[in-house]
Protein backbone atom coordinates (compact mmCIF):
# COMPACT_ATOMS: atom_id res chain seq x y z
CA UNK A 1 0.00 0.00 0.00
CA UNK A 2 1.38 3.42 -0.90
CA UNK A 3 1.84 6.10 1.71
CA UNK A 4 -0.67 8.36 -0.02
CA UNK A 5 -3.37 5.74 0.44
CA UNK A 6 -3.32 6.57 4.13
CA UNK A 7 -4.47 10.10 3.26
CA UNK A 8 -7.96 9.11 2.19
CA UNK A 9 -9.61 11.04 4.98
CA UNK A 10 -7.80 14.36 4.83
CA UNK A 11 -7.32 17.22 2.39
CA UNK A 12 -4.22 19.34 2.81
CA UNK A 13 -3.93 23.01 1.92
CA UNK A 14 -0.73 25.04 2.05
CA UNK A 15 -0.88 28.86 1.98
CA UNK A 16 2.19 30.52 0.47
CA UNK A 17 1.36 33.98 1.88
CA UNK A 18 2.83 35.36 -1.34
CA UNK A 19 2.09 39.06 -0.97
CA UNK A 20 3.67 39.82 2.40
CA UNK A 21 6.56 38.69 4.51
CA UNK A 22 4.59 37.80 7.59
CA UNK A 23 5.70 34.19 7.61
CA UNK A 24 9.36 33.39 7.96
CA UNK A 25 10.38 32.52 4.36
CA UNK A 26 12.44 29.64 5.68
CA UNK A 27 9.43 28.11 7.41
CA UNK A 28 7.24 28.47 4.31
CA UNK A 29 9.92 26.99 2.12
CA UNK A 30 10.53 24.04 4.41
CA UNK A 31 6.83 23.22 4.70
CA UNK A 32 6.39 23.33 0.94
CA UNK A 33 9.57 21.34 0.49
CA UNK A 34 8.31 18.70 2.93
CA UNK A 35 5.01 18.41 1.08
CA UNK A 36 6.71 18.24 -2.33
CA UNK A 37 9.05 15.52 -1.11
CA UNK A 38 6.18 13.47 0.32
CA UNK A 39 3.58 11.36 -1.41
CA UNK A 40 0.59 13.25 -0.05
CA UNK A 41 -1.95 14.95 -2.26
CA UNK A 42 -2.26 18.66 -1.48
CA UNK A 43 -3.28 22.05 -2.75
CA UNK A 44 -0.93 24.98 -2.58
CA UNK A 45 -2.59 28.39 -2.73
CA UNK A 46 -0.71 31.65 -3.30
CA UNK A 47 -2.38 33.82 -0.66
CA UNK A 48 -5.58 33.05 1.22
CA UNK A 49 -5.97 36.72 2.12
CA UNK A 50 -6.04 37.77 -1.51
CA UNK A 51 -8.34 34.88 -2.36
CA UNK A 52 -10.75 35.89 0.40
CA UNK A 53 -10.91 39.52 -0.74
CA UNK A 54 -11.30 38.49 -4.37
CA UNK A 55 -13.91 35.87 -3.50
CA UNK A 56 -11.82 33.39 -5.42
CA UNK A 57 -13.89 30.30 -6.31
CA UNK A 58 -11.14 28.17 -4.77
CA UNK A 59 -12.31 29.42 -1.35
CA UNK A 60 -15.74 27.91 -1.96
CA UNK A 61 -14.15 24.72 -3.25
CA UNK A 62 -11.89 24.39 -0.22
CA UNK A 63 -14.59 25.15 2.32
CA UNK A 64 -16.70 22.41 0.74
CA UNK A 65 -13.96 19.89 1.41
CA UNK A 66 -14.29 17.84 4.55
CA UNK A 67 -11.44 17.10 6.96
CA UNK A 68 -9.28 19.97 5.86
CA UNK A 69 -5.82 20.55 7.24
CA UNK A 70 -4.50 24.00 6.46
CA UNK A 71 -0.96 25.25 6.88
CA UNK A 72 -1.23 29.06 7.04
CA UNK A 73 -1.18 31.47 9.97
CA UNK A 74 -3.31 32.08 13.08
CA UNK A 75 -6.43 29.90 13.07
CA UNK A 76 -8.65 32.84 14.07
CA UNK A 77 -7.45 34.80 11.01
CA UNK A 78 -7.90 31.88 8.62
CA UNK A 79 -11.40 31.08 9.89
CA UNK A 80 -12.65 34.66 9.53
CA UNK A 81 -11.03 35.04 6.12
CA UNK A 82 -13.15 32.15 4.86
CA UNK A 83 -16.19 33.66 6.56
CA UNK A 84 -15.45 37.04 4.92
CA UNK A 85 -15.47 35.30 1.55
CA UNK A 86 -18.95 33.97 2.41
CA UNK A 87 -17.77 30.38 2.63
CA UNK A 88 -17.16 29.63 6.30
CA UNK A 89 -14.96 26.68 7.10
CA UNK A 90 -16.62 23.56 8.43
CA UNK A 91 -16.13 22.78 12.13
CA UNK A 92 -13.70 19.95 11.53
CA UNK A 93 -10.64 21.80 10.31
CA UNK A 94 -7.10 21.70 11.61
CA UNK A 95 -5.07 24.86 11.08
CA UNK A 96 -1.30 24.79 11.46
CA UNK A 97 0.22 28.15 12.22
CA UNK A 98 3.39 28.80 10.24
CA UNK A 99 3.88 32.03 12.20
CA UNK A 100 4.38 30.15 15.44
CA UNK A 101 5.05 26.46 14.85
CA UNK A 102 8.22 25.11 13.36
CA UNK A 103 8.32 23.77 9.82
CA UNK A 104 9.40 20.35 11.08
CA UNK A 105 6.40 20.10 13.40
CA UNK A 106 4.00 21.08 10.63
CA UNK A 107 5.50 18.79 8.01
CA UNK A 108 5.48 15.91 10.48
CA UNK A 109 1.78 16.47 11.17
CA UNK A 110 0.81 16.91 7.55
CA UNK A 111 2.73 14.00 6.14
CA UNK A 112 3.16 11.92 9.30
CA UNK A 113 -0.51 11.33 9.95
CA UNK A 114 -0.83 9.65 6.59
CA UNK A 115 2.14 7.48 7.45
CA UNK A 116 0.48 6.37 10.71
CA UNK A 117 -2.75 5.66 8.92
CA UNK A 118 -0.85 3.74 6.30
CA UNK A 119 0.70 1.59 8.98
CA UNK A 120 -2.73 1.07 10.55
CA UNK A 121 -4.21 0.09 7.22
CA UNK A 122 -1.42 -2.31 6.36
CA UNK A 123 -1.31 -3.97 9.80
Amino acid sequence: MSRAEGQKTRSIVYCHCAYAKVIDPEVKQKVLEGLCASEVAFEAVPDLCEMSARKDPAIARLSATSDLEIAACFPRAVRWLFHAAQHPLPEKVTIHNMREETADEIVARLTGASREQEQELSS
Binding site: Q7, S11, V40, F42, E43, A44, T65
Partner: peptide, 26 residues
Amino acid sequence: MTALLEGGYGVTRPRPGGRVSPEDES
Protein backbone atom coordinates in the same frame (compact mmCIF):
# COMPACT_ATOMS: atom_id res chain seq x y z
CA MET B 1 5.29 24.96 -7.43
CA THR B 2 7.24 27.90 -6.03
CA ALA B 3 7.36 29.67 -9.41
CA LEU B 4 3.62 29.23 -9.87
CA LEU B 5 2.76 30.32 -6.34
CA GLU B 6 4.97 33.39 -6.59
CA GLY B 7 3.24 34.16 -9.87
CA GLY B 8 -0.11 34.08 -8.06
CA TYR B 9 -1.32 30.64 -9.17
CA GLY B 10 -2.55 27.91 -6.86
CA VAL B 11 -1.50 24.36 -7.68
CA THR B 12 -3.37 21.15 -6.99
CA ARG B 13 -1.23 18.07 -6.66
CA PRO B 14 -3.41 14.98 -6.80
CA ARG B 15 -2.02 11.60 -5.75
CA PRO B 16 -3.59 8.19 -6.02
CA GLY B 17 -5.58 7.55 -2.85
CA GLY B 18 -5.12 11.15 -1.70
CA ARG B 19 -7.81 13.81 -1.57
CA VAL B 20 -8.04 17.30 -3.03
CA SER B 21 -10.94 19.75 -3.23
CA PRO B 22 -13.76 18.88 -5.62
CA GLU B 23 -13.99 19.97 -9.22
CA ASP B 24 -15.92 23.17 -9.89
CA GLU B 25 -16.41 25.33 -12.94
CA SER B 26 -12.91 26.85 -12.92
